[in-house]
Amino acid sequence: MVEHRPWLTFLTHAVLIIGCVIIAFPIYITFVASSHSLDDIVTSFPKLPGNQLIKNYGRALSVGSRDVLGATVGTMMLNSLIMALGITFGKISVSLLAAFAVVYFKFRLRMMFFWMIFITLMLPVEVRILPTYKVASDLKMLDTYSGLIFPLIASATATFLFRQFFMTVPDELCEAVRIDGGGPIRFFFDILLPMSRTSIAALFVILFIYGWNQYLWPLLITTDESYYTLLIGIKRMMDVGEGQAEWNIIMASAMLAMIPPVLVVIFMQKQFVRGMTETEK
């Protein structure tokens, strides 16, 4: 497969570079816009970063846009973070336990439960959004963190993934623990959990980004601005009707919204790649 022909090298690099530019360009524009004053952007769009960077970001974090009252980008980021982490940890722990039950315990209707979980794969949040809203509001979970987190926790994908992984774990390990004197809980925490480390890390990355990017559900369930997530906040900053949206602040917020997922990917990329490619035996 590896061929050393100069023009081929040139071509592949050219394709890659063009791809990068296409993807990076909007981000660059956002960055440029977030570093100018509002007047500069509105009158003639500058090509190079300006000198208002610190001022814009400072205002976004501590004050917020004048159109969204009561929520600075700082609090909205915190809300987003709480929601994303809640969904991530919730999904991982629930699906670990569900997969553990389905693989290691014999109980009545086990396969039926498994298929029930599996079938919900076909029902994304959007499909079941009305009944879920009704349930959440009956449980008085509107405008709460639990309302943001719990309805999104059940995860067929992650359950299925862990089930597949557990099925590759040799039965003898479980038997060895039984002979060593440990019960199911010990087996789960001492053996299975550490062995699933890499899969958990990979899922963490995927689920964190999934949680961070939730838009529709938080939009429905929050009316109180102090529970807004950042993504909704940004949308609200743009809905100004007749007035002039504060594009510099919006762009600064958008840049800030990118940071946590990027950090997660950067810090966990090694485990992520390992989790996707190797299974520890």
Partner: peptide, 20 residues
């Protein structure tokens, strides 16, 4: 009795060593 209460120890064919 559960395996643990029989006071036996077993060597498995594939050893079943905890990998981590």
């Amino acid at each position: 009795l559960e395996p643990a209460d029989r006071d036996i120890a077993m060597v498995f064919q594939n050893y079943a060593l905890y990998p981590h």
